[in-house]
Structures are given as C-alpha cells and as structure tokens.
Amino acid sequence: MNITEILFWLLTVVALTGALLVVTSKNPVYSVLALIATFFAISGHYILLNAQFLAVVNLIVYAGAIMVLFLFVIMLMNLNTETEPQKNKWLKMAGTVAGGCLLLVLVAALREADSKSTIAMVNTGDTGLIQNLGKTLFNEYVIPFEISSVLFLSAMVGAVVLGKKE
C-alpha cells in the first residue's frame, strides 16, 4: 500500500462516518460539525485527484461560509437535543423508504453509465489545477459562466428585496 492508498482509505472512512453522524446524531450542532468533517474528507479526495482548486473552493464555500450560516441559525434558534421534536415511528419509516427509493433510482441510473470504465487519475491529472481550470472556464464555457453570475446577482437582489420588506 502506498501513501495515496492509505490516505484514500482514511478519507473514505472519515467521509462515510461523518455522513452517517450527520443523519444519526440527535444534537443539530453535532450534525453540522459532522457535515464539516465530511466536507474536509471530500476535499481530501479532490486533492488526491490533483484537483486542488476544487478542494480549496469546496472548503471556502461549503465548510467556511454555508456551514457557518447553518451554525448561526441553529445557535440563534437554540436547537438542542431537548427541543428537537421527536418524529413518530411511521414518519421515520416513510423517510427510510423514500431514501431507499432515491438510492435505487441513482444506482439504476448510474449502472449503465460509461463512467465505470473510466479510471480516476490519482495524483497525475492536471485538469484540476487552477491554470487549466481557468482557461477552460473562460474559453469554452464563458457564456454559461457569466450567466450563472447573473443568476447569483438576481438571487442577491431578491434577498435584499425580501430583507427590506417592512
């Protein structure tokens, strides 16, 4: 086993444990922290694939900004284990069935996809480096890129309008 493989298995264990803890822990603050750990592990996977930019942006945007807002809301509403409403048994059952259905659909959709034959380029590929990514984004995908920025702008204006409403 070389160091990449060891790291891969370690990160996988952390990611899966974190993801399970998000769902199972009773305290919402623990859930958020477990989600942050999961994001870290996934960023580690990106780094193993040599996609450094993606890894760091994943940390800045998701773990650094969005999760802070989650934590803000949870702390201000003071959600604790005691205040957490206990759902009844049938609702939990329905949730499990719905989740299982989603899993089934995803597996069925990906079963025939040709991604099975492509092997991840661990530690070698350079498409994820910031230079190549920037060139691709601003040469080939410049219009979708700019349109998505307009989308963000409209979301921001919408938020301001909602916030200003007396």
Binding site: V29, V56, L59, I60, G64, V68, L129
Partner: peptide
C-alpha cells in the same frame, strides 16, 4: 509549496470562525 497557496490561507481563515462560534455557544 502548493499552487493555490493564497486560497489555502483563505480556507484556513474561514475555518477560524468555528473556534470562536463553538466556544461561545
């Protein structure tokens, strides 16, 4: 020497919030 040095620093900076928030809460 990673080629995203400054972005890494920003990632760490945005993590710095958690120490304060978790401690305070």
């Amino acid at each position: 020497d990673i080629n995203i040095g400054i972005l890494y620093i920003f990632a760490v900076l945005s993590m710095g919030v958690y120490g304060i928030m978790i401690g305070g809460w």
